[in-house]
Design a binder for these strands. Sequence first.
RNA 1: GCGUUUGUAGCUCAGUAGAAUAGAGCGUCGCCCUCCGAAGGCGAAGGUCGCGGGUUUGACUCCCGCCAAACGCACCA
Length: 577
Amino acid sequence: MIKDYFLNEIETAIKKAIKDNKLGEMKEYTRGSLSTERPKNADFGDFAINVSSLARFARIAPPLIAKNILEYVEKDNNEYSVVAGFINFKAGKTLLSNAIEEIFKKDTNYGKPENVKTEKILLEYISANPTGPFHIGHGRWAAMGSVLANLLKFYGHEVYQEFYINDAGSQIQKLGRSLAIRVRQELGEDIDFPTDEIERKNFYPGDYLIPVAKEFIKKYPNEKTFEPLSDTTLKLLCDFAKDYEEKVQRDLLDNFRVHFDNFYSELSLHKSGKVEECVQKLRDSGKIYEKEGAEWFKSSEYGDDQDRVIKKADGSNTYLTADIAYHIDKLERGFDRLINIWGADHHGYVARVKASIEALGYDPNKLEVLLGQLVNLVINGNEVRMGKRKNMVTLEDLIDEVGVDATRFWMSMRNIDTTLDFDIELAKTNSDENPVFYVQYAHARACSILRNAVEEKLNTETGEKTPAPMTKAELDELINNYKAETILPTLDTAKKLILKLEEYKSMIKTSAETRQVYTICRYVQELASEFHSFYNSNRVISDDKEMMRARLALVIGVKKVLRNALNILAVNAPEKM
RNA sequence: GCGUUUGUAGCUCAGUAGAAUAGAGCGUCGCCCUCCGAAGGCGAAGGUCGCGGGUUUGACUCCCGCCAAACGCACCA
């Protein structure tokens, strides 16, 4: 990376300067103490290093420090300058042309970091109840989770994506009883869900169970014992509804380009005895006590703000109990790191799950929980609160409305810490107001230029054909045997674009290391913007063959980098729009 | 009351690790197609970085207090 090259040159020069006693009282320098930054004003340079922080060791003024360091720098064809305590740097033709060459050489692997520590990661996200369709909030975790998985894999990690199915709790009972009512309605009974608000909470009154009821009747035409509801019938209803909803969820995920390696059933965790095993281990190690008929886990000994019930007075488990077992199971499967994406409404759970991991002898730092703020829908400029019952817009509705590409992009484009305003109208527009189209348009435009480069042109008035600016073979030669010096003719007018293409590498690295996928969305918009700007001020196809080849190389570079980035986002990079 | 997160231009958001004039997009206003996709570009206006202290040579950034918003604070999942 250019900024690392620059930093390395300066650090090497500092060591040499110290040896010659040119940095006052400074006797040693440890690498990494300084860092590069982007000058606010581009006139200063492409990158800058502020050496003021060395002043207290050297005991001489920052400008003099900078000046003295500069005397030891191998400048090659790069430009260095000193302003106050800053050493400014402008990349020369070698670095810039090599940067473009690297895109051609590495192609789909361009930007993959080298010499980084990689891990075996289990990434858990969405993990919804199989009790109904996904809502918009799930869409954010789905998009961000799958993008993060793609990103971490590209970085070099081994990533295993898992969806935890909450198929064991009372929610499933609620689902089964709700289906019973829908079935009875379908069979002609005059019956409805309770109108009393509190009683109604024991049901899922949404319309989505109506088609499920119809299917149920087809499969079990002789099933009539709904009143009173027998245990066997209830189980039949529960299983049927659960399987049905799971299938609906999985089909939608598939369509949304979200692909899990495993769906982990909470029920299987209970059946395997792993839940009881964990509870017993906690009892054995004295981390459990009885109070008011329930068993409590001393999570407060491990940083939680209070102890938590792990066995209810009626002997059943809490949700936490299973979750503890689940996380222990993940660790026992040998993962170096567990990353969970949870809604911010679950933040209270982080401390207790970490506490349980520690109490059971594992390293709680292996668990990294990314808490995501929720999603607001904006329709015609008005915020629509995602209430649990009213105004419930499903993820499927949203995708039908705005498309997979726009939904994925919008759901990924904001910092996970901020609530996301999803503007449906904006996500649908085909103009620069919509960042997805803006970026896709840049890609399509690049493709279009490449098509024009090898196509003969027909003059509609005269009917004459002008030969293609270059042959297909010449274009292939340009791509397959790319030479670094190809772009030199356009270096001056395209520097910003080249630097932006080069920045892809550091963007990917920090994005993966900070788990912030929105930076990819931002980057892709910035690159598109630089490209549009370049396009407007530089004619690509022209009679000047060398200039044309230079600019075509950049167009190809932009196309490759945009495609790589969009691949990580799993958003289409269209050839035409 | 306690905890987590957020407060930056009219709107939606960036701002890496504390530094040189606070950055984008949208919106508003003005300009640019006989020429590769104008679904684009160029420019202008627009800011007491929620408020008040503190640390520092230097704070949007770190610390403390306050104000506002969202979400939690179950023997629910």
